[in-house]
Design a binder for these strands. Structure first.
Lengths: 66, 66
DNA sequence: CTTGAATAACAATTCAAT
DNA sequence: ATTGAATTGTTATTCAAG
């Protein structure tokens, strides 16, 4: 419904936390009161052109490319 | 065995083609005479810190982040 | 046009071997 | 330390629906 608001939240979340998977991102969103499934996260990530990168920690995380 | 040489080839290949999957990358390498499986490609991608991005074509492709 | 459930497709890791 | 086969985990897409 509020795709834009959700996508802004996604960007905010990936800046704030090391989010390893789309399921984890879904969890954060759900806890923020935004009901969402992995399928839609996948589509948001595509639209936002996010990528999964190797973090300094050695783990993968979602990030925006510059 | 020749990990470095292979990884250089990987970088070369992703610059030259829009490579969508690790299997596809494995195919290119195998055709270059470098025997390799998806498991190792995954490790190479991790070491090289490559990412899967949405290409201008609208498809996903592997890329180096600047 | 946007979404979720289910599934297919793909990628990361384990485990054994070298 | 590096790798492949098999497996597990994760993500993209399909398909139906609103």
């Amino acid at each position: 419904m509020k795709k834009y608001a959700r996508q802004r939240k996604v960007l905010e979340l990936i800046e704030s936390y090391e989010i390893e998977t789309q399921e984890e991102l879904a969890d954060y969103l759900n806890k923020s009161g935004i009901e969402i499934t992995q399928a839609t996260i996948s589509r948001d990530i595509k639209e936002l052109r996010l990528v999964k990168v190797l973090a300094k920690s050695g783990k993968y995380k979602y990030a925006a490319i510059e």
